[in-house]
């Protein structure tokens, strides 16, 4: 892992360094103009936030039913990344909404469900950090219930009201925008994979150190 990590990290840095130029060269959107360009950062982060939530929930289920410590480490790493990418989503969203809708925040289906997903995983991290011994299982249950909860939140707020652009927007992008968009998606996906690998490595090292420590005690 360490051998490919450094080149990939350099590649990720290069992608992110080039991203502003790529985004600036993408054609301007007719009605929203400049502010639309935040889309290239907002949507990839949101995609990875949901991917990360699914990774965390699935890994938690594996931990609860299979007792696999590796799955728990993966869940913990993915749980943190949900919160990190969620912060990007929740910061860039209102910036766009202020210009496009005239308000910073609206209790729209997608906004509310993203915020709740973020809250659930923030609670997940709080449990892991402050739950004391045995909190891994509690956190696992939290992630599992959190994942099961997402459709309910979505249906309930969707019925309530909705303003947010549909996901079909991505499929109907014009060519220039599409290439810039997928460029940003790959940059964010690479960053996500690297962070996840790094975080997983840290957890593995920590578990190793703990095992050695326990062995020393005996």
């Amino acid at each position: 892992m360490t051998r490919v990590f450094a080149p990939l990290a350099c590649l990720a840095m290069a992608l992110f360094a080039a991203a502003p130029a790529v985004v600036a060269n993408a054609p301007a959107e007719a009605t929203m103009g400049l502010v639309q360009r935040i889309f290239y950062y907002h949507v990839p982060s949101a995609m990875l936030m949901f991917v990360s939530a699914v990774v965390c929930g699935t890994a938690s289920a594996a931990y609860l039913f299979r007792r696999s410590a590796a799955a728990d480490r993966l869940a913990s790493a993915a749980g943190e990344l949900v919160v990190v990418f969620g912060l990007i989503v929740l910061a860039t969203g209102p910036l766009w909404a202020r210009k496009a809708w005239g308000v910073w925040w609206d209790w729209d289906a997608r906004l509310t469900s993203s915020l709740l997903l973020w809250l659930m995983f923030a609670a997940y991290l709080l449990v892991r950090r402050y739950g004391g011994p045995g909190s891994e299982k509690l956190a696992g249950a939290m992630a599992l219930f959190g994942m099961a909860n997402v459709p309910f939140v979505y249906v309930s707020v969707n019925y309530w009201r909705t303003l947010h652009p549909k996901t079909s927007v991505i499929m109907t992008l014009e060519p220039g925008m599409r290439s810039a968009f997928w460029f940003c998606v790959s940059a964010f996906a690479l960053l996500y994979a690297l962070l996840l690998a790094l975080r997983l490595r840290l957890e593995e090292r920590r578990a190793e150190a703990e095992a050695l420590f326990l062995a020393l005690d005996e």
Partner: peptide
């Protein structure tokens, strides 16, 4: 589950409210 946890008084609402928000909305 929280019976065994250290800060159970705070953690119960922290865990419960985000998950039960659909119930509250509905």
């Amino acid at each position: 589950m929280l019976v065994r946890a250290r800060s159970r008084d705070v953690l119960l609402p922290v865990l419960l409210y985000p998950i039960t928000i659909p119930v509250i909305i509905a």
